[in-house]
Design a protein around this nucleic acid. Sequence first.
DNA 1: GGTAAGATTGTCT
DNA 2: GACAATCTTACCG
Length: 163
Amino acid sequence: MCGGAIVETEAYLHDDPACHASRGLTKRNRVMFGKPGHGYVYLIYGFHFCVNAVCRPAEAVLIRAVESTFGATQMLARRPVGKARELTNGPGKLCQAMSITRELDGVDLCNEQSELYIVENVDVKKFRKEKGPVITTTRVGITKAATLPLRFYLAGSDYVSKR
DNA sequence: GGTAAGATTGTCT
DNA sequence: GACAATCTTACCG
């Protein structure tokens, strides 16, 4: 068991050229056309995995950074790093640390019996208060629709990938 | 059947 | 700051 608070996300909308689902259903993005609440996991650049939470049909939120709150020992075993923040301050990094792979593509994120799931609890609310306001900026690492303000992160978190 | 590009990261300068 | 590593998918012929 390991986990943490999501501190950085990006949104991908159905009419957004940067969204994998914008050009219709394919083998890779089929999960995005399924039921909302499921996880979309894919391999990028042949090296790293990225996780998304499907929110509406053909629309998803990319999880870019997590601040680990428990199970950090296990995560460090999978991803040995010097500084704690290096553990999960990037979409590919957090997938390695939490052993998120393509096997989890399509997982039900709303079911606490799943290998991977997302919940909102009182600690998260307190965490958000401590970490300050949510900053909205442009998305990172994309070439299409790069100016849309669809990236969100907590101003006070050390685990945000880029400022 | 071939090829170009990608929602990244780590390493070297 | 620049660049290589490495592979799946999408698109064209």
